[in-house]
């Protein structure tokens, strides 16, 4: 499967601070990809680099085989809904659609109008008067009606209430089903990621800790509980993600190629949230990474 985003040793520096460094990544096409990680891991920087809003300091990044924002053609193929879903406060909803129509050669006006009508947005209303959820939906409409091959969303639902969040994701996923576009979205909300995404990338300290199809990841990870033992003595093919011990008991999160047969272990499945937290935990040598988990 071809990669929609391909990054090699990608780095971005602001002054003396590296927002992203040594990031190597392949995001396959045809997925809704969830990019998760603690604050400051470089998610926003990575997505902005992919959208061509930033230029890399080191390394390189290819999106759909081209350099991000290298021209109008490349811009047309990639949609980007930025954090806080900005819109022009003084423009009406209809004017935003007109903006989209004027600036995008592949604009799907019927789709845009239909979406606005179904959302119940008044085309004459100014964007500044819309609720956060409505504004996000307007920004999403612009992103979808542009008919990109890849849609990138940076924390699109972070500021929304649960109902607006659900409606936003419904709209996004419906468009994904209808137009077969690839989606990469970053989110703090693991429950949303679990529903919406079928591919997961965990980014910690700008490094990819784990990436893969969600179902494969869930199938390959287990929580083992049993009498205390040295995690280094596990059979090959079982990699320890995290380990914690009491005097008598060991609890391990392992990634295993096959089923766990050792009868000494009590084997439990992990939820996506457990899995992500396990990787964030293991990656946090320099203090505990903060991950918001909202349900």
């Amino acid at each position: 499967m071809s990669a929609v985003i391909r990054a090699r040793d990608l780095g971005k520096r602001y002054g003396r601070r590296w927002a992203l460094s040594d990031c190597t990544l392949d995001v396959p096409a045809g997925h809704v990809v969830g990019l998760v990680g603690p604050n400051g891991a470089g998610k926003t920087t990575l997505l902005n680099l992919a959208a061509g809003q930033l230029t890399p300091t080191t390394g390189d990044i290819e999106v759909l085989g081209g350099r991000p924002a290298s021209g109008a053609g490349q811009l047309a193929r990639v949609g980007f809904v930025a954090q806080d879903t900005p819109t022009y406060a003084g423009f009406t909803v209809a004017e935003h659609l007109r903006l989209g129509a004027r600036l995008n050669p592949r604009w799907d006006d019927a789709l845009a109008r239909d979406r606005i009508a179904r959302l119940g947005l008044d085309p004459g209303a100014r964007a500044g008067k819309l609720s956060g959820g409505q504004r996000a939906q307007l920004a999403l409409t612009l992103g979808i009606a542009k008919r990109p091959e890849l849609l990138i969303l940076d924390e699109p639902v972070a500021a929304l209430d649960p109902l607006a969040r659900r409606e936003f994701l419904q709209g996004l996923l419906e468009a994904t089903a209808e137009h077969g576009l690839s989606v990469v979205l970053s989110s703090h909300l693991l429950s949303d990621v679990e529903r919406a995404c079928d591919y997961l990338i965990v980014l910690v300290d700008s490094r990819v800790r784990v990436a893969g199809e969600v179902d494969d990841l869930l199938a390959a990870h287990h929580r083992l509980t049993g009498p205390r033992r040295d995690p280094a003595r596990l059979p090959s093919g079982q990699d320890v993600v995290t380990a914690s011990h009491t005097d008598r008991q060991s609890t391990l999160v392992v990634r295993a190629d096959g089923p766990i047969h050792d009868p000494a272990w009590t084997v439990a499945r992990l939820t996506l949230e457990d899995l992500v937290l396990a990787y964030l935990d293991s990656g946090g040598q320099t203090g505990r990474p903060a991950l918001e988990v909202l349900r």
């Binding site: 809704v32 659900r166 996923l173 419906e174 994904t176 919406a196 995404c197």
Partner: peptide, 11 residues
């Protein structure tokens, strides 16, 4: 997908 806000590939 529209009802559950769920990934189409999952369905």
């Amino acid at each position: 997908v529209a009802h559950l806000a769920i990934n189409p590939n999952t369905v």
